[in-house]
């Protein structure tokens, strides 16, 4: 569905060197797959997505979407994919149903057929009751759902979702995940960007981790965790200002039970196959953390390992 080789995007800036937002990435997305771009703000995810959506010209490398070249067949590509952009582009003065209807018409779909599909999509994203409401009166989560419904109006082979749940409360996010999961079951190819680890873990079969315009790791969520992290993570928290100074003592206390200890401003992360055993070792050494927590390792830990930084600030 997508084949990118050495893909680049640079932005001309007045009086400055061009800024390289994407610095040569290789990506292959197969039909029916749920593929993720995971990375912090500024990693180049949206720039990549806009090139894939055939709205932003490629600055370097090669890109094929559905076997077509976005530089020459942009209109045709756009007719076969659905896009949920990071920034909403709904017409807030129109109603929910009107937004879907007029958008469907842009694809050249007949009036009666668009009406039928708009109703079905509203049903799918659970907005049927709000069909007559003005978009400006919708909550953020409803607007995102409407944008997703809109991206489905042309029955696309592939849907691009740029940060579909950013800014939503947990409940709204779970509703969205559920809808995206159903789309995936219907065989729609999904390409998702996110800076949430749990989202990537929930939705993606395969993902790339991006940082500063480059891909720093690639694989399934489980394989990335296996490769770059441990099965469990013990989080131990000391008093304010004592975390960093306790790191050495913790490291010698856990010894070979842990693979490594990561120091964050507010806590220490002990990467270990058996988190409970690591915490016990810390206590046995006479150290007294104010709080401890053992959890499964996540993509957050992978990102921390790869870049030395946490993902969400």
């Amino acid at each position: 569905m997508i084949s990118a080789r050495g893909l680049r995007k640079s932005f001309q800036q007045k009086g400055q060197e061009p800024f390289e937002a994407v610095r040569g990435i290789d990506v292959e997305v197969r039909r029916g797959e749920a593929f993720g771009f995971l990375g912090p703000n500024g990693a180049g995810k949206s720039s990549t997505m806009r090139m894939i959506a055939a709205v932003s010209p490629v600055s370097g490398g090669s890109l094929r979407i559905l076997g077509l070249d976005p530089a020459t067949d942009g209109s045709q590509i756009r007719g076969r994919i659905g896009v949920c952009p990071q920034e909403d582009s709904l017409d807030t003065e129109l109603t929910v149903a009107e937004n879907l209807y007029v958008y469907g018409r842009y694809f050249g779909i007949g009036r009666a057929e668009v009406r039928r599909r708009a109703a079905a999509q509203l049903e799918f994203v659970q907005l049927t009751e709000r069909g007559g409401a003005k978009v400006e009166d919708l909550s953020g989560g409803m607007k995102r759902r409407l944008t997703i419904a809109r991206s489905m109006i042309n029955d696309p082979e592939m849907v691009l979702l740029d940060e579909p749940t950013t800014g939503l409360d947990p409940q709204a996010r779970h509703v969205l995940w559920d809808r995206l999961f159903r789309l995936k079951q219907q065989g729609v190819t999904l390409v998702i960007t996110t800076h949430y680890m749990d989202e990537a873990e929930q939705l993606c079969d395969r993902l790339v981790v991006m940082d500063k315009g480059l891909i720093v790791a690639e694989g399934s969520p489980a394989s990335l965790i296996a490769e770059y992290s441990t099965r469990e993570v013990a989080e131990v928290r000391f008093g304010i200002g004592e975390n960093e100074s306790s790191a050495g003592a913790v490291e010698s206390a856990v010894g070979r039970r842990a693979e490594r200890v990561e120091v964050l401003p507010d806590r220490l992360l002990i990467y270990a196959a058996d988190g409970e055993a690591a915490v016990a070792a810390v206590h046995d050494a006479g150290l007294q953390p104010v709080a401890t927590l053992v959890r499964r390792s996540s993509l957050e830990d992978v990102f921390l390992r790869l870049t030395g930084r946490t993902l969400v600030d």
Binding site: V83, E87, D88, S89, E93
Partner: peptide, 14 residues
């Protein structure tokens, strides 16, 4: 403000 041109631009419209 509404960015509807960007919405249109994501479709076959040029």
């Amino acid at each position: 403000w509404q960015r509807v041109y960007f919405g249109m631009n994501a479709t076959p419209l040029r």
